[in-house]
Amino acid sequence: MINLDGKIVEEKDAILSVRNRGFAYGDSVFETIRIISGKIMFWEDHYFRLMASMRIMRMEIPSSFSPEFLEKQIIEVIEANNLETSPARIRFAVYRLQGGYYTPATRDIGYVITAEALENSFYLFNDGNYEVELFKDHYVNSGLLSTIKSNNRAVNVLGSIFARENGYDNCLLLNEKKGVVEALNGNVFLVKGQVVKTPPISDGALNGIIRKQLVNILKKTEEYTLEETSISPFELQKADEIFITNVALGIQPISKYRKKTFENKVAKELLSKLNVKARLG
Results as ranks from 00 to 15, higher is better:
M1A: 04
D5I: 04
G6M: 04
K7V: 10
K7Y: 09
E11W: 09
L16Q: 07
R19S: 09
N20F: 06
F30D: 05
F30W: 07
I33H: 02
I33W: 02
I35T: 12
I36V: 12
G38Q: 08
G38H: 09
K39L: 02
I40N: 11
M41N: 05
D45I: 09
D45T: 09
R49W: 04
M51R: 11
A52P: 06
R58S: 11
M59C: 03
E60C: 06
S63Q: 04
S66F: 05
F69H: 13
F69S: 11
E71T: 12
K72E: 15
I75K: 12
E79I: 08
E79R: 13
L83D: 04
S86L: 07
S86C: 06
P87K: 01
A88D: 06
R91W: 00
Y95D: 04
R96I: 05
T106W: 03
R107E: 13
Y111S: 03
V112T: 01
A115E: 01
N120C: 01
N120T: 05
F122D: 11
Y123R: 07
F125A: 05
N126E: 11
N126K: 11
V132Y: 10
L134E: 06
H138F: 15
V140I: 15
S146M: 09
I148T: 09
K149E: 05
N151A: 14
N156K: 02
I161K: 06
A163W: 05
A163N: 03
R164Y: 02
R164S: 13
N175Y: 03
E176N: 13
K178C: 04
G179T: 06
G179V: 05
V180P: 09
L184V: 08
N185H: 08
G186M: 03
N187F: 01
N187P: 00
L190N: 00
K197W: 04
T198S: 04
P199V: 01
P199L: 01
I201K: 14
A205W: 05
A205V: 12
I210H: 10
R211N: 09
K212Y: 12
V215T: 15
N216E: 15
N216R: 14
L218D: 00
K219L: 14
T225D: 07
L226I: 07
L226C: 12
S230G: 10
I231V: 15
S232T: 11
P233L: 04
L236M: 08
Q237Y: 11
Q237H: 08
F243H: 14
T245G: 01
N246H: 08
N246P: 07
A248E: 11
L249H: 15
G250I: 03
P253M: 12
K256V: 09
R258K: 15
T261W: 10
T261F: 14
F262Q: 07
K265H: 13
K265N: 13
L270P: 09
N275G: 06
R279G: 07
